[in-house]
Design a protein around this nucleic acid. Structure first.
Lengths: 151, 151
DNA sequence: GTCACACCTCAAGTGCACTTGAGGTAAACT
DNA sequence: AGTTTACCTCAAGTGCACTTGAGGTGTGAC
């Protein structure tokens, strides 16, 4: 924990590729943490760069910040995560991502087989199929509609 | 265009699986169209069910309504789309979806190889890699951050 | 000393994809 | 005749992931 390798918010922003307000926002949301120096400025440990990288990676495949936060909660906050810590997160995300990729493949294939063929029989069509709880999750944009999540 | 097989908004909602206000909302956004009966109520042609199905399918793989609207704009509004019309849309989406699936696979594999191994060298790491235009698309939630879209 | 610069807080705004609510009409059942 | 049902319009609210703005502090360079 040598003082000299803590990072200022500007450097974190620059090196992680997000804006300065976004770094503050992520801290507010509990995705990252910081200490303060004598003047009240945030000081970040190096591993927040990795945490932010993980946040961005999670967003890339459609996770919300809350969900990402749960995954990050499995990592230690006080000391730099070990390789084993990261591997655990990586493994669990790998599984979730694979499931989502497969769901997308099903939608894609359903699209060609069903829309392409022109059948669209209400019962059998995977595109038409909507019998699950649609619009049953409250307002706001649907990042991953329920249908993409089921088996 | 016999009068008897036009649908009321309630039936469209029920059969497409979205709420009644959502049907109106989609119409307002130009994703579907309707005529009005003598009493001023919306009357929908059957093929709006397919259009809504396509909207939901598009959302399932992360497209925004504007983008979906562009794709639907390739379909005729005045008469029911032909099989060929749907096939054209299906083909173009298939390609886009495949690209996105591949992008997700890259993120997934980057996640395991990079986070798992603990390297995270700024230049080579696909997870860390953020040099593209992040947060450069204005405010609002990022459904498909720019990074997921590139080759 | 004053200037720029990096940082701070707090409040409000933004875009999306909707939902919710208030207040009303028109036809259909009882 | 009264009620239920289905629909209408217009306005405002909601959750997310941020951004933007106003107004202020601390440190270093000239």
């Amino acid at each position: 924990m040598d003082r000299h390798d803590l990072l200022g918010i500007g450097e974190v922003a620059r090196r992680s590729g997000v804006s300065v307000p976004t770094v503050r926002f992520y801290e507010e949301k509990g995705l990252i943490t910081s200490t303060r120096d004598a003047a009240g400025r945030r000081r970040f440990e190096r591993h927040v760069l990795r945490r932010i990288a993980v946040v961005r990676a999670g967003q890339r495949f459609g996770m919300g910040l809350a969900e990402i936060g749960e995954a990050l909660a499995g990592l230690p906050v006080d000391h730099p995560p070990t390789k084993r810590d990261w591997e655990r997160l990586s493994r669990s995300w790998h599984a979730a991502l694979t499931a989502r990729i497969e769901a997308m493949e099903r939608v894609r294939d359903g699209l060609s087989s069903c829309i392409g063929c022109g059948c669209l029989s209400l019962k059998a069509c995977p595109v038409y199929n909507h019998d699950d709880e649609l619009a049953a999750e409250g307002p706001g944009p649907r990042r991953w509609p329920a249908a993409a999540r089921d088996g």
